[in-house]
């Protein structure tokens, strides 16, 4: 069980400065609040079916927050890679994948927190709660986030000599994924070619699964596809991350 202990060691180290940074967390809530206040009223006009446009919008929103929140986490590793911090840990008996996993979990913590707060805030505006399926939805998001964070760490290690490279690549991957995922507006409104392109975007399936889960559906194909996508991202992310970190100091 040293693996779990190492994950915990890495997670708690990372958590300590965060816990003392609640201001930052509160700031992180401003953005979702703005979306709910200034964007959701518009959705009523677009014509989204379902009990409330929030039921459709909130899942897309938290997928977006998770994607952007975790795609950029590599920068924190870049910093410790350039100083001697990562090297200090690499010279100890700690498991390397466990180090990554602990770090990724810390990055997720505020995101899950944000998602929960957002759901709570949306209730008075008409969001209906479907407890079990929504919790499964958050779990899926968490695992997806760990996978994306691990990929982001791998990218940071690969681009350690050139920080701007890291930003360029991570942004230019995350942004089209987000736009093509139908996060903000329904993809059904898109022209044919755009719709087709969105079917090749793994994020689309996650967003669709989350939307199903947010209206209380569980045994549907979209939930199955979404879960498979998350599993694939998690496995690929951790495998690529663990392989790259071995080369971190070369």
């Amino acid at each position: 069980m040293t693996f779990a202990a190492d994950v915990w060691t890495s997670f708690t180290r990372e958590m300590k400065p965060l816990v003392s940074g609640w201001v930052w967390l509160a700031f992180g809530l401003v953005q979702p609040l703005l979306y709910i206040g200034l964007f959701v009223p518009l959705l009523g006009q677009v014509g989204i079916e379902g009990p409330s446009p929030l039921q459709w919008f909130i899942p897309g929103m938290i997928v977006m927050l998770t994607l952007f929140g975790t795609a950029m986490v590599g920068w924190s590793l870049t910093e410790e890679l350039m100083s001697g911090v990562l090297e200090r840990f690499l010279a100890t008996p700690m498991s390397r994948p466990a180090m990554l996993m602990g770090r990724a979990m810390k990055e997720l913590f505020p995101l899950v927190f944000q998602a929960v707060v957002m759901i709570v805030i949306a209730v008075p505006f008409g969001l209906q709660i479907f407890g079990p399926t929504m919790i499964y939805g958050l779990l899926l998001l968490g695992l997806f986030g760990i996978g994306v964070a691990a990929l982001s760490y791998a990218l940071a290690v690969a681009a350690k000599e050139d920080t701007s490279m890291f930003y360029m690549v991570s942004q230019s991957v995350a942004l089209p994924l987000m736009l093509l995922g139908g996060v903000l507006l329904p993809m059904e409104m898109a022209p044919g070619w755009l719709y087709t392109a969105s079917r090749f975007n793994p994020l689309t399936y996650l967003v669709e699964a989350e939307r199903a889960l947010f209206v209380g559906e569980f045994a549907t194909m979209s939930v199955l596809y979404g879960s498979l996508v998350v599993l694939a991202v998690l496995i690929i992310g951790l495998a690529v991350g663990a392989t790259t970190i071995r080369k971190a100091t070369v």
Binding site: S83, G84, E87, R88
Partner: peptide, 8 residues
Amino acid sequence: GQKNGAGV
């Protein structure tokens, strides 16, 4: 190591 090992 030659570089600082403690996180900022």
